[in-house]
Simulated assay, not measured.
Amino acid sequence: MNSDEREIRARHALAEELAVQAGKLALGYFRNRDDLVIETKSDPQDVVSIADRNVETLIRDGVTEAFGADGFLGEEYGLVEGSSGYTWVVDPIDGTSPFVHGMPNWCVSIAVLHGGQPVIGVIQVPCHDELYSGALGRGATLNGKALTLDGVKTIRNAVTGIGANHHVTPASVGRTVEDLLKTGGNFVRLGSGALMLAYVAAGRLVGYYEPYMHAWDCLGGYCLVREAGGWFLPFPVEGEGLTRGAPVLATGPGAIDDLRRIAGV
């Protein structure tokens, strides 16, 4: 085992540990959500609560204690540069809208970047007691069981996840859905892009497309999809690209061509 492998393994173990801790903290807030003060961001559909902030702080503190030279990008508190070459990218509660409305479609997403790619991806789904976990060259698992994608599922015999937000026009989302349906597919939207990417890695969805997402929403899921044998559209992580949004597409082997055509990438 070389030094990079040892470094990745150490961070992978910590990412799993912190995801479980963060999930427990978030679940406590979820069960007492009537007491949460909910704030809106730039759009009425984009909400945040003290739960998001405190969960992110828990993860950030854990990373700082163990790997103080690592960078850290969180949805709530932004980017702190590091010097180690590793950067943690975290969404403390992806799917805050489902979270505050009492739906289980939310998760904690943790990724670690190194060498311009997500080398670790861990997604904890507290309401379903599911831990998705993967690391570069080590495969992906769901609660310890290996995830392996094949080419049997296509957009015509499986379901595709579609995401939308205020950064894209309703017309463009409508064209995507219309094209998917005309091609013989069907779709779902759960309110958490990170969760739907985990579902791609697990084979529950054949693919996921969203015209505009942030790094903290997708990089953990991207690692899982790759390690399970799927494909994803690279996310621009260099320079300011890491803090800006970009199109996100991840698919199982049997849907790559169809979904790349539908997404126009």
Rank of each mutant, 00 (worst) to 15 (best):
V20C: 02
A135L: 14
L79A: 04
P104Y: 05
V90R: 02
L136N: 14
A22P: 03
F99M: 12
P126H: 09
V80S: 02
G78I: 10
H128E: 10
F30N: 02
D43V: 14
N32P: 15
A51E: 03
R53I: 00
F67N: 02
G68T: 13
E76G: 01
T87W: 11
V55Q: 09
V37H: 14
V112A: 09
L79M: 11
N105H: 14
V48F: 06
H128W: 11
R33M: 09
V37Y: 15
N32R: 15
L18T: 01
S42P: 07
H114E: 15
I120K: 13
E76N: 02
V20M: 03
T40L: 10
V48P: 01
V55Y: 03
S83L: 11
V100T: 07
G116Y: 13
R53E: 05
M103H: 11
G62Y: 03
D34T: 14
N32D: 13
D35Q: 15
Q117Y: 09
Q21A: 11
V37N: 08
G28V: 06
Y77W: 12
A135T: 08
L58D: 03
G68E: 14
F30D: 02
A111L: 05
R60N: 06
E130Y: 06
K41W: 10
A135Q: 13
D61P: 11
Y86K: 04
V122F: 08
V89A: 06
M103F: 15
N54L: 07
R53W: 01
W88H: 00
T64G: 01
G23W: 04
C127D: 09
G134V: 10
Y29Q: 06
G82S: 06
V112H: 06
G95T: 05
P118F: 12
L58P: 00
D52Y: 04
L136K: 14
E130A: 11
D43R: 13
Q21H: 15
H128I: 00
P92C: 02
A22Q: 04
V112G: 07
M103V: 08
L113S: 08
G74A: 04
G62E: 08
G78S: 07
E76Y: 02
D94T: 06
L113W: 01
L136I: 15
P126R: 05
T40Y: 11
C107P: 07
I120D: 11
K41Q: 09
